[in-house]
């Protein structure tokens, strides 16, 4: 046995392409199933939500105007990076007492899910856009267009696959997001931030906060510069709170609350469509 002392990792957040600590200065203990503390994670609060939304908004225009091909390349690049760090993620999941076999499956499915959505970026407007035969002398077409800043409450279980299954369709469609990671298992989310950082994803496109979701959901879902919410939290009063807050700025809000993220149902282009605005353009036809 070596005398060497392991260098432990400090888990921070991922905001605007950087890894800041929480503005609050607080952390909370991440425990495994045996209630042993395995790491400390940032306990983000209101101000972190605020900063993350600002970061997301400033990234939106550039990300949404990237070519669909380019977004696809970048999503595929994320998959490549994740594949390369498979062992790290498996270990991190094991740290949380997830069985190795399940951990491997979760990481592999996560990679595959990214590849799945990478392939959709340049097909979504072909499959879900229309050319509309209006009765007047006009050319008329409808195309999906990104909704904007989307807040995501990611699932407690499936800390990596659930996270990726919610983020991938949102950013594949040109949106940017602020993600509240699994409260119980935040470590894979933070490490996934590192993968994103290494994958040509522009800073601010995905922002990941750790902490107690209840301390952040209210601020995120009421934020007037957030255009949509994807919620996986099944608690009834939280759901209602999100809905009510959403009405302040007419957010597009979807709840995905009873899920087995392993199911192929989660490879679903309609999840991309949830955060797409259909824009219809008219133009006369004449000489």
């Amino acid at each position: 046995m070596s005398d060497r002392i392991d260098v432990l990792k400090t888990y921070k957040t991922y905001v605007a392409g950087k890894f800041p600590r929480s503005e609050s200065g607080h952390t909370y203990a991440v425990k495994n199933k045996k209630d042993k503390t395995v790491a400390n994670a940032c306990r983000c609060t209101r101000k972190d939500v605020r900063d993350a939304v600002v970061a997301a908004r400033s990234a939106f225009s550039e990300w949404s105007s990237r070519s669909a091909y380019n977004r696809g390349q970048i999503l595929y690049r994320i998959a490549e990076m994740l594949e390369g760090r498979k062992d790290q993620f498996v270990e991190e999941l094991e740290l949380l007492d997830i069985k190795k076999k399940d951990a491997v499956k979760e990481v592999e499915l996560s990679v595959d899910r990214l590849v799945y959505y990478a392939g959709w970026t340049d097909k979504i407007s072909q499959v879900f856009g229309t050319v509309n035969p209006v009765a007047s002398q006009h050319f008329n077409f409808s195309m999906p267009d990104a909704t904007g800043v989307v807040g995501i409450t990611s699932p407690q279980e499936s800390p990596l696959l659930g996270l990726i299954s919610t983020i991938a369709p949102v950013i594949a469609g040109g949106n940017v997001c602020v993600v509240l990671s699994s409260e119980k298992y935040p470590l894979p989310a933070v490490s996934f931030g590192e993968v994103l950082h290494a994958s040509d994803v522009p800073g601010g496109v995905v922002n990941i906060l750790t902490g107690y979701q209840k301390e952040m959901i209210d601020h995120l879902s009421s934020h007037m510069d957030v255009n949509g919410i994807l919620n996986t939290n099944s608690e009834k009063n939280i759901r209602k709170q999100i809905d009510e807050n959403s009405s302040l700025s007419v957010k597009r809000t979807y709840h995905l609350t009873e899920n087995n993220w392993i199911e192929t149902e989660h490879e679903n282009p309609y999840y991309i469509l949830n955060f797409q605005e259909i824009k219809t353009t008219w133009h006369p036809i004449g000489v």
Binding site: A135, S136, E277, I278, W282
Partner: peptide, 23 residues
């Protein structure tokens, strides 16, 4: 915006989707 009328305005047709962004 959900509808962009270029070189025309306030045209409606049943085949043409209509609806808004944001609020």
């Amino acid at each position: 915006s959900g509808v962009v009328w270029s070189n025309t305005f306030n045209k409606f047709d049943p085949t043409s989707p209509f609806g808004g962004y944001k609020e």
